[in-house]
Design a binder for these strands. Sequence first.
DNA 1: TGTCTATGTTGACGTCTATCGATACAGGTG
DNA 2: CACCTGTATCGATAGACGTCAACATAGACA
Lengths: 123, 123
Amino acid sequence: MSNTKVLPLLDAGDAVAACCPPLTERPFTAEEAETAARMFKALGDPVRLRLFSAVASHEGGEACVCDISDVGVSQPTVSHHLKKLKEAGLLSSERRGTWVYYRVEPSVLAAMGKLLTITPAAA
Amino acid sequence: MSNTKVLPLLDAGDAVAACCPPLTERPFTAEEAETAARMFKALGDPVRLRLFSAVASHEGGEACVCDISDVGVSQPTVSHHLKKLKEAGLLSSERRGTWVYYRVEPSVLAAMGKLLTITPAAA
DNA sequence: TGTCTATGTTGACGTCTATCGATACAGGTG
DNA sequence: CACCTGTATCGATAGACGTCAACATAGACA
């Protein structure tokens, strides 16, 4: 908490997109695991997964908070989870007038999908 | 081995494999999110991710504990994390003589990959 | 039998995290 | 300006989690 000087949100996304080979290709290094685990961890909470899925499946890949906040937890908790997803590089946000819109980072989604690819060599 | 039905490991794997559409297809229900989040959470720790990657990339998709336990934590911690991966349905284990071998569940890996597929409708 | 190695389990400890109510901030409307 | 709505932050708290040392268990071998 004390060492949160700056939040490198965009860097996180880029790092994730480029960091890692498929899980089945070779053993991850400590660094690769650290980077990739950050993403998996972000999706490792049911509420966050529902929020992320709601945004990802929304028209245009973006959604207002008011459209997705019906997940059974309080408003501060929703805000907290959206922040976590942002810090993990999975979502970006933009305020337009009264409402705040969250959007998925497609490159990150693709990178995660590649991680779970089954390589011919390992199969 | 005694047929203790304590841990429904295979059920967890099956549930994961069949539970969920791509994240971008429609908002997850609470139940779907609960199931899928269990997997992501299991991979959301750097040590577990390294262990899983080590097993998945090992010859034949299986590895002895002794081959993968060099991840910078104590032996009990390695055992603890392997257990977690087992409970999440990502790995299965089998004792052969002195050593215990862990193997990846390929169907689960494929199911997770499908989760992260970008559907044409959402793109 | 006893001993050695490989792996799992237990119990404890410190840290992280999900959650909430209260509050602050931002922007629209009157 | 004041007021209302949508969203973020703060502070507190209960529970989950990662880690280790100590101990337990399973199999191989003499």
